[in-house]
Structure formats: C-alpha cells, structure tokens
Design a protein around this nucleic acid. Sequence first.
DNA 1: TGAATTATTGATCACCTACTCAATAAGAGT
DNA 2: ACTCTTATTGAGTAGGTGATCAATAATTCA
Lengths: 214, 214
Amino acid sequence: MAAGTTRRRNPAERALEVREAAKTLALTRGLAAISLRNLATHCGVTAPLIAHYEPNMDALVASTFAAIAEQEIAEVSLHALAPDDALDQLRALISALADPARDNVGEVWCDAWSLGRKNDPLAEAARHSMDSWHALAIGIIRTGQNAGQFAAIAPERAALVLFALVDATASYQLVNFRSRETRDTLVRETLEDMLDVSLRINDDARNPSTKPTV
Amino acid sequence: MAAGTTRRRNPAERALEVREAAKTLALTRGLAAISLRNLATHCGVTAPLIAHYEPNMDALVASTFAAIAEQEIAEVSLHALAPDDALDQLRALISALADPARDNVGEVWCDAWSLGRKNDPLAEAARHSMDSWHALAIGIIRTGQNAGQFAAIAPERAALVLFALVDATASYQLVNFRSRETRDTLVRETLEDMLDVSLRINDDARNPSTKPTV
DNA sequence: TGAATTATTGATCACCTACTCAATAAGAGT
DNA sequence: ACTCTTATTGAGTAGGTGATCAATAATTCA
C-alpha cells in the first residue's frame, strides 16, 4: 500500500492478524463494530480479503468474543489461584474483576448478551464462558468452606450471585449508572455478607466483628 | 394505499402511531430494530414521513425506551403497592419482575445498556428509570424494616442487589443461560437471605424456621 | 368555490452492511 | 527464467442505515 506494492503474507500470519484486529475492534468499539470494512481498514487491506479469511461475520463475532472471554478467564484464574489461602484467592478474584482495565471486556460481555439473541454461536460462547467463570468461583468457595473460612451457602448459588452482581455492574457502567466505587462496593459487600468474610485486601480478619480496633 | 388513495391523518394521531410502532418494534425485535424504514413499513407509510415526525432516530430510540420503562414501572408500582403489608408488597414486586410476560422488556433493557454507550440520551433515560425502580424498592424495604419485618440491611444496598440480580438474569435470558427457574430462584433466595423473609406467595411465615409443618 | 396549508410522497444522496467473482500479481518451486 | 499456486484486488450485487428536497395531493379555511 505505502509504496504501491501489494504485500502478500503468509496465510496463517494474515489470518492471525485478522483475528487480532477483530479483538481490538471489539474491545475498543464493541462487538457490533466487527465488520468486513472496519476489519479491512484496520488491516490496511480490502474487504474481500477479510471475507476470504472469515467468510461469516456472525461466526467471527462469536469466535472473537470467545477468544476475549476465555483469555480473560485464563489470566484471572492464574492470578486468583496463585495464593494458597481460599480467602486470598477470593480477594484476588474480586480485585481482578474490579480492575478498571477490565471495563472493555465488561462492555463486550454486555454486547454479547444483547447480540446473542440473534447470533446463536455467540450465545453458545457466552454460556460456555459463563460456566467457566462459575467453575472458577465455585472451586474457590468450596475450598474456603472446607477450610471453615466461608459461610455454608451453596457454592453454586454464591457463584451465581457473585457474577450476577459483576455482570450487572458491567452493564451499569456502560450507561454511567452510579460511581465505580458504588458498583464495586455493591459486589464486595454483598459477597462479604453472603460468605461472612472480609474482602478488604489489607485486612487479615476472617470475621470483621472480632477485628481489633487499633 | 389499499384503494390507491393517500390517507392523510391528523398530525397528533400520526405522531402517536409512530411512537406506538417504535414501542412495538422495540419489544418484538429489540431497540436496534427501530429504523426509519422499519417504522415506515410498520405504519404502511414512506420513510421520509417518519423522519418528518421523528427527525432524530437516536432520540426516538431513547424516548421509546423511556416510554417502555416508565410504563412498566408505573404498572408494577401499582401492583406492588396494592397490599398494605410490606412483605406482601415485596412478594408482589418480585413476582411481577419474574413474570415471563416481562421478558421483552428485559431484552429492551439489555439493549439499552449496550446501545447507551453510543447514545447519551438513551443512557440518561436508563439511569433515570433505574433510579425509579430503586426508589420503589427502597420504599418497600424501608417500610418493612420500620415494621420489624425485614433484616436491618441498608435499603439502598438491598435495592441495588435486588435489581442487579433482576438485570443480570434478564441479560442471561437473552442467551438462554440456565433455566428460568434457576434464574428466578437466584433472585428470590438471595433476597430472602438478605432480608430474612420468605417470599413464597402462599407462605405467611415471616420467619421460615418457625413455620408449622402441617 | 377558491386559496392556503401541510401531510405525504418519489427521488436522491451518502454512507453502511455482507458477499461474490473474475482478474491481477506476488511469491514459491522447478 | 518459467510455471504454478494463491493471496489480493477491483468491480459489482443486493441490501441496510439516516437524512434532505421538491413535488403532489388531501384537507381546512375563507
């Protein structure tokens, strides 16, 4: 393009570039921004070439969402499962989910629910990644309960509540409802009450009511 | 059209028809389906006429959402505030929110969060209606607490949790995540735990642990 | 009945979407 | 150097979006 010469790339390399462009587009402008033209512009290439690599946009939207979601789950899992103690794991999980750097991913999730109505593979990918998230939380909660650290609520239900709060606040963020602090506090305090723990990171007390008033 | 003659309507009447068409379109095919051509087809009229009455589609999307949301809030408020007892009010509220007839409205809400990112008036309308919902719930919760029926959680927080659960499950429904029963149970049981009440409609016990085992 | 008003239309612009197909040309292998 | 494969393009189809403008025609009012 720049020198008037057509760059001809290794197919695998080009395919990867297109998928990366789709991710970038999704994270910066939403899943709905994934289109042949936007991808083409982003890659400095014509639209038919994109169609050559990705013959179905709905499928690309779905696979792009899956890639973003699964990558985040993998990263957060690694971070959350690093500590040995279940309470520390839960704290790591919550703080990772509250990280403002995650905002873009939250927006993509909201897009996925809305678009999932008309895009079956996308809906399926959403369900699958939701199951992955729940599995992570359930594991942590169960471990903590076995260690006597968490209240004896059904882990499945606690996980559902946790992500319902996280997901709802992600949607709220898109329309600037309430402050980030209010949204984060909603998640944290509800979970604290439900599991009877303190999730403040610099607070070792397992039971807030017995912590010293130094 | 039918007889080859152009029907010329009273402007107020036509404007109303367009607004009604927008509501119908939103509830059946989502907020994103509101377009000049879809509206024109629905009204049996040409697109420029729609533009004549609604010169700005983003604004129409926002006002249509506001109309749907506010109408529902008004109806549910009436239903929920009918009983004298706060517990019965809460039960009425929850059962109204769980009504499958409300599914379409839930989808519209999810659309609103997703589209609200690029449509400021829509985001504003969403925030406003969210505040209305919270006000309704806070009133009921506060009344119940004053009567000693509900646990002493901050009403604002309880309301946030309630609607976070309702909103998240509405999103989940769009991608068929879990069963309706699981989603409804999630809302109900979490609220029961949080306020220490029983929300099953044919159950008068205020404290489940003391109810007779007839 | 005639004139003024205006709801409504047809035509068009400018842009977007996905998708197809034949032609071009870059690079690989011989 | 030559052929072969194929990545890439240009051009086009068929539809979608919002929006504007002058012309038409239905209704209202004088």
